[in-house]
């Protein structure tokens, strides 16, 4: 099991789907960002597994790039979250409709 590519892909798919469930279902903006990190975990696992099992360093490189982008994304996302909480005093996604209409 530990030496088949499919097993890692299943775990990556489950993590990604759970992350998407969190993004769609949770109300708190912080947990939505955390669920996005969870989706990135699934993607990282998938790309790393492809790199290992295809004996290609490209998978490692993609995982490294995804880590970099995850770091920048969470930094900017948390800065936006701080600004929003300073202005609106609450962090619910369903009440953040100031730019909706």
């Amino acid at each position: 099991m530990a030496d088949s590519l499919n097993a890692y892909l299943y775990v990556g798919a489950i993590l990604f789907a759970l992350g998407m469930l969190g993004v769609l279902v949770r109300r708190s903006l912080i947990v939505v960002l955390l669920s996005m990190e969870l989706m990135l975990q699934g993607v990282n696992l998938t790309m790393g597994a492809f790199g290992v099992f295809n004996e290609d360093m490209g998978g490692y490189m993609l995982t490294l790039a995804s880590l970099t982008i995850a770091a920048s994304e969470s930094v900017v996302g948390l800065a936006i979250l701080v600004v929003v909480s300073r202005k609106a005093r609450e962090l619910y996604t369903d009440r953040m409709d100031g730019m909706k209409w």
Partner: peptide, 15 residues
Amino acid sequence: PYLHKNQLWLGIPLA
């Protein structure tokens, strides 16, 4: 409440 009650019916099937 910490879950979108009216997005559960769409979010769970989509996931």
